[in-house]
């Protein structure tokens, strides 16, 4: 019974991880400039990798394999913001202008964001 529950949980986690990873990568392809792409890349590092590794944790059980999976995730969580920050500030000092929404679209978008807030 416990085995079945763990199996199902691990399935759900792995599918969720692949979903977030694919969405993040689609974001990397779709977004208009390097700064907005960084937001999408952060998704694959935090949720995509996290859920995928969590799914593997359920498979591993309480062994040293579990410790290694946790270490990989801890390492990713620790380094991902550092390299993201380094990339963003390098791009800024390299003179890449952040993308801003064209004026004719921005009014519509602001109202859209307002809708989401309420």
């Amino acid at each position: 019974m416990i085995d079945l529950i763990l199996e199902v949980l691990s399935w759900i986690s792995i599918i969720g991880g692949i979903f977030f990873m694919m969405v993040g990568t689609i974001g990397i392809v779709r977004m208009p400039d390097v700064y907005t792409r960084l937001h999408a890349a952060g998704m694959t590092d935090t949720m995509g990798a996290g859920l995928l590794l969590l799914g593997m944790c359920f498979q591993a059980g309480l062994t040293l394999v579990l410790v290694r999976l946790v270490l990989i995730y801890a390492f990713l969580l620790f380094t991902s913001p550092i390299s993201t920050h380094a990339l963003a500030s390098a791009a800024l000092s390299g003179g890449v202008e952040p993308y801003t929404v064209p004026a004719d679209r921005s009014g519509k978008l602001n109202s859209l964001n307002g809708e989401q807030n309420s």
């Binding site: 960084l38 937001h39 999408a40 952060g42 920050h85 963003a88 800024l92 964001n113 807030n117």
Partner: peptide, 29 residues
Amino acid sequence: YANSITLTPGTITTNIQGQDLEIHALTLK
């Protein structure tokens, strides 16, 4: 603090000057 901001997707810390954090955000929300 800066790394926590970067880890939550949608906001990125691009620079720290003293107590001032420069943030790039994906949406106004």
